[in-house]
């Protein structure tokens, strides 16, 4: 097992087939892998199964056939909490992943819940709030801010945990060109640290600019460009 871990592969998808209850087959026999430090883009028309694929690689959904391995371990055997320690996952609809009364608490949640000292949490939160230009919104409710602000709060609350891999479902929704550029820079700075990134997106410019590798889904199948 050790060999697998020391290799460069982070997520391995082996012959995965998936359909929702009573739905037609959404993904058929998908086999691929994602490396540390790699920036991959997942594209495809609406309804082609990108979000579904992302959720399979995060363990939110499980495959009907085939398996997903994270760092060489079958994802079925890893708890969601443990996956969360490694993989940062951004929901396509960020409102779904926010559950704290204020922006500040939202971003600091994992750290303060696990008992880190107030000063350390505050320091980390402030740093990341600056990185995502969320100053002034610390005490606002995550429900009562703009769409793009909410997007950045969701991103910030993932990045503060320093995950070793990122799966971001439509990260540029609601972001203006300035913030999009900031996100590009940030993601680019993570790559050399060995952090792998999968971005699901319809934003052609963003992908062309950043991705090392583009995988297209359609008709339930993968097509590497």
């Amino acid at each position: 097992m050790k060999e697998v871990c020391s290799s460069n592969t982070f997520i391995e998808v082996n012959n995965v087939t998936f359909s929702y209850k009573k739905s037609e087959i959404i993904l058929k026999n998908i086999t691929t892998s994602f490396d540390k430090g790699e920036f991959a883009a997942l594209i495809g028309p609406n309804g082609s199964g990108k979000t579904t694929f992302g959720k399979l690689m995060t363990g939110i959904l499980s495959a009907n056939e085939g398996s997903v391995f994270v760092e060489g371990k079958n994802i079925e055997e890893i708890s969601l909490g443990n996956i969360g320690k490694k993989i940062g996952y951004l929901f396509q609809q960020p409102a779904r992943q926010l559950f704290n009364p204020t922006v500040k608490e939202e971003i600091g949640f994992a750290h303060s819940f696990m008992g880190k000292s107030k000063e350390i949490v505050e320091q980390k939160v402030n740093k990341i709030i600056e990185e995502f230009s969320l100053q002034g919104l610390e005490d606002a409710s995550p429900y009562r801010i703009s769409r793009g602000e909410r997007q950045r709060v969701a991103l910030a609350s993932i990045f503060i945990n320093e995950p070793s891999f990122l799966i971001l479902d439509e990260p540029t929704t609601g972001l203006d060109i300035v913030r999009k550029e900031q996100l590009s820079q940030l993601l680019k700075s993570l790559q050399p640290q060995g952090i792998g990134i999968i971005v699901i997106s319809h934003d052609k410019d963003f992908i062309n600019k950043n991705a090392d590798r583009v995988i297209e889904l359609y008709g339930g199948e993968q097509h590497e460009a």
Binding site: G44, P45, N46, E170, T172, T173, G174, H202, K204
Partner: peptide, 8 residues
């Protein structure tokens, strides 16, 4: 924002 090329 979340629409494919054809849809746009």
């Amino acid at each position: 924002a979340q629409i494919d090329q054809k849809g746009k």
